[in-house]
Design a protein around this nucleic acid. Structure first.
Lengths: 339, 339
DNA sequence: CTGCAACACTTAACCGATCAAGTCATCCGT
DNA sequence: ACGGATGACTTGATCGGTTAAGTGTTGCAG
């Protein structure tokens, strides 16, 4: 079955290709009557403009790209990215932009993918997640002048706009809440230490604990996997002076921590309080349900998509700090039993 | 910064555009020496063929599409799709095909997306998941002659090839295992009842239970969410003659079931054994870790991608039944306490 | 020495849009 | 009645590749 082109429409309407193009794109140069006739024919024969032809002659390919740099094993149960993608789609679908996805192994590979996408003119812009210190991707984006939005800063991104959430504020709220419950030994299982937002969180955690007089606030680095999160928890809990509360940098590690505690015969929240960061449905799924730092990931993604589309349209885009995640208390936090 | 084109290469190599095209595509018509010179120049200036131009003049856009038809809330913690996507990528990246993603609300919308993608020539083929009875997408795919692979049959898909796993075999193994442990009251919390593979599982479960003399085998339909899975579990467990083992159609519901059991004061596996279908890392994360029906989702996805790429290349593609999921016993199954 | 095939290219049409420039008819003010 | 502006189109170049058809050179058999 042959795909209809503007030439087909032009023939049926008895006008030229150019007129059809003007009519369908709402450009001046055709009368209202002709425009309506052309639009009607286009609808009737189910016309969709060939995106290749459009991208070739004009400007945009109406597609944006996202690279995911995590091993498959982690990706599959990491709720963050799918939440983000859902958010992107809300905005992208509305303006009929496509989302192109690529799973990669290293940030280095990501730069190669950006170069290829740019060279192939496959995407008009990209989402950049997991910002690192001296991130290798930033100079490439600036060099290519590829429109982009960084999700998760703040950092030194040159002219690339970024979007982040107030991690320091969120962790402060969590620590103060745990202190108010009576906790004095609070630990944290962090995400990948290379990531800039992990560093922000670690710094803020250390600072707020120091400010509040908690001397033993320790962050154990981890990698967002359940296994590592579980191991980190075990290491924390075998200490004589074990923490009475642990804050986790993602929900997967928090769930793993919960099951390690249970496996070690500790009751949650009696012996150990748990706070998860990012409140995916997973947190309400386990028993007890996890107290979590809640933010609307889909809204975050939608916001990023709006930023990216604006950048693609050539509008000035500013760095934005999204609202602070708020604490959603659930069954996994309580006053420590022996305090 | 201007993107290099074959015209740039041609100028530098002192040959025509056509020669460059032949050289870079491995076509005959240029000498080895010239080919090497051209390839070297292309590498040096970082040439990538404009995908729009290529798609326009030639055949393929070197992209395939995937539509995801689940609410955002479910998508974010449903490990299946991300696992599948990782599998797709293994094959696609190797042949530098891009994956275009779209989240949609209904199967009806999916058909519209297929039509648009096809009309826009945006993708060369699509992955179709969640096959339903009399699926509205199938006639559209056949009408458009859009290459596709259905993941999760078997069903009546006309000329569209499909790939499925032996659900009946898997569930038989699970039921026999539970019987061998001494269970006589086995229930199942099923996935979305519209989906063809859910129906296959339900039929097989009913049949195998009947064949083995389990009269009370009941399937409670659900929707893959934790909430519904938890509710279904609660409904099963408040019966006087409550089941001693439950098989869940996905891991999220199984985890929810586990926490409902714990919340009701039942011990797992003492009072209730739990088997999850699809063994994501989530199953090993909780306490006790869940016995699961394991299959390699990424390999499944990779296989599907190979099938789709073959279909796109015009090669004949046959329906394939992937291997049976095998049972991975973990801590959530044991002989029933009071039998 | 001729004829012809094989090779190594070049030329130019083509894919399906966009858009600047050109054409033609109509209207309007003076 | 005429010049000029305006509207409603058409024409044709263009984007960057692919590819069929054409061209010129070389080698070799007869």
């Amino acid at each position: 079955m042959k795909r209809p082109t503007i030439a087909d429409i032009a023939r049926r309407a008895g006008v030229s290709k150019g007129a059809v193009s003007y009519a369908l794109n709402g450009q001046p140069g055709v009368s209202e009557a002709t425009r309506r006739r052309i639009v009607a024919i286009a609808e009737e024969i189910g016309f969709n403009p060939n995106s290749a032809a459009r991208a070739l002659s004009g400007a945009s390919s109406r597609a944006v790209g996202l690279t995911l740099c995590r091993p498959a094993r982690i990706l599959s149960i990491e709720p963050f990215f799918m939440g983000l993608i859902s958010g992107f789609e809300q905005e992208l679908a509305a303006r009929s932009f496509a989302l192109t996805l690529q799973v990669v192994a290293t940030p280095q590979t990501e730069t190669e993918v950006y170069r290829r996408w740019w060279g192939e003119r496959r995407v008009d812009g990209v989402f950049v997640t997991d910002l690192r210190e001296n991130d290798v991707r930033i100079p490439v984006l600036n060099e290519l002048q590829l429109p982009a939005v960084v999700i998760g800063g703040p950092g030194d991104t040159g002219k690339v706009p970024q979007l982040w959430s107030d991690d320091a504020g969120a962790i402060t709220e969590a620590v103060r809440y745990l202190m108010a419950l009576g906790h004095r030994r609070i630990a944290r299982v962090g995400g990948l230490p290379d990531l800039l937002h992990t560093q922000t969180r670690t710094r803020a955690f250390t600072e707020v604990c120091a400010a509040l007089g908690l001397s033993e606030a320790v962050t154990v680095p981890s990698d967002y996997t359940g296994e590592e999160g579980g191991r980190a928890t075990r290491r924390l809990l075998i200490n004589a002076e074990r923490p009475t509360a642990i804050i986790y940098d993602n929900d997967v590690m928090a769930v793993a921590g919960l099951s390690v505690a249970q496996e070690m015969g500790l009751s949650v929240p009696g012996d150990l309080s748990i706070v998860a960061w990012d409140d995916s449905p997973l947190c309400s799924l386990v028993h007890p349900p996890l107290t979590a730092l809640t933010r609307d990931i889909a809204a975050y993604g939608a916001h990023a998509a709006r930023q990216l589309l604006a950048a693609i349209a050539g509008e000035p885009v500013q760095d934005v700090e999204e609202g602070t995640a708020h604490l959603t208390p659930r069954g996994s936090t309580a006053p420590p039993r022996d305090s």
